[in-house]
Design a protein around this nucleic acid. Structure first.
Lengths: 216, 216
DNA sequence: GAGATTCATTCGGTATACCGTTTCAATACG
DNA sequence: CGTATTGAAACGGTATACCGAATGAATCTC
């Protein structure tokens, strides 16, 4: 028996806690995350906090000043524009690459869509929505492509969280639209060509254009 | 006078040294980079070495095992395939986005091409080649796009370095081809539409297809 | 001999301490 | 009043030390 896959590193715990607080909006953008202060608050030393901050930087939730101080990232409308352009490039590509894989097995995607139908909170829908897209990135088979997307995921969550808090999103209709679109994409993997899958994903993301802060 | 932009962090020095050794091939792929050993060799403590290893991981030159040990990344033909697909996606996009910026000012690109013409070593050509492409990524104005590309740059350098060492590249003709292609791209920014710039970059990268390890 | 076991060594995760630099607000200056 | 100055507190970069876990080779088992 070689079990014990959970060393429970303090750096991971610290990252999880800080991640939650940032995504919740508990700690507002621009806040200084001083190593000493965070360490004292979490009851650990500065070393794991340091690593947690680096991890969060890779996720796009934290940014470092020139002098090495960590701040909760503050996103501007232009940042969302950048993210949007990249999603519009990376995700259709992933869809095309994933087409052959997903033709054989779409059980995970189907589970995700079913769970989204049953979801009861906006947080849950958001999580499942991002998970749906990440499943396709993972199915692309290009681990670098998945890594690139994951480095943007934190910022995408910040974006969605902001939309939710401003009540611009997640009326009953938009939820239904999301589920329908995802359902259509899943079916496309079974019935259509890779190029068609790519196109469908592109159109799905184009539908997000209206939620860009700039256009509101 | 507030000069002193060079704190000369030991972590940066360590990263530079290790980076050079990895790209040279001095430390071969798969080599364990134990923190203690590297620290002793460089005459610093483990802490800056740790950070250097994280930095090199972001650059794609080092990978961590499940138990946290750092190894010099070993690239497989499939890895090159992944990198190629991503270049083929990101760089034409950057070209299109950079078109408006570069219509106004191509001096940096022109300097680069001129320097490439004057280059006397394969290492220098490689460096200038990657710099040319990076200039365009930077000119795209999308800082996230630039960051994504930079996270692949280390692996691209490993790829080119391998090609050089196997003498498959950098005959006089391929150098001339590179310079010509780059010159054409620079001119396209002045004379053509963003879509045409995008297409030209795509074709330039398609030209690299023959250098994929799989096809040789 | 092939595979499981043991154990000394190595290695990474973390705590703590020290130091120079940065920061920022109170103060002095024009 | 607006702008330099200054000095104490805060912060990050690094060194060192401790510990449990992982590693790999020698050993034991069948």
């Amino acid at each position: 028996m070689n079990l014990a896959p959970n060393p429970a590193f303090r750096s991971d715990s610290a990252a999880s806690l800080l991640r939650t607080e940032i995504l919740n909006g508990t700690t507002s953008p621009g806040t200084l995350l001083a190593e000493s202060a965070v360490a004292k608050r979490l009851g650990v030393s500065r070393v794991p906090v340091r690593e947690a901050l680096f991890a969060l930087e890779r996720e796009g939730l934290v940014e470092f000043s020139a002098t090495g101080r960590a701040f909760v990232k503050a996103l501007t409308p232009q940042d969302f524009e950048e993210l949007y352009v990249l999603r519009l490039t990376l995700e259709p590509l992933a869809s095309r690459l994933a087409a052959s894989t997903l033709k054989a097995d779409i059980t995970q995607l189907e589970k995700n869509v079913a769970a989204t139908r049953r979801a009861r909170s906006v947080q849950e829908v958001t999580r499942l929505d991002l998970e749906f897209h990440q499943l396709i990135l993972a199915a692309s088979g290009n681990v670098r492509l998945l890594k690139l997307w994951r480095s943007l995921r934190g910022e995408l969550e910040l974006w969605l969280g902001r939309l939710h808090r401003s009540h611009q999103l997640q009326t009953r209709e938009t939820l239904q639209e999301t589920v329908d679109a995802h359902q259509g994409i899943v079916e496309s993997f079974q019935t259509q060509s890779p190029a068609a899958c790519e196109r469908l994903m592109r159109e799905h993301i184009l539908g997000w254009r209206e939620w860009l802060p700039l256009s509101s």
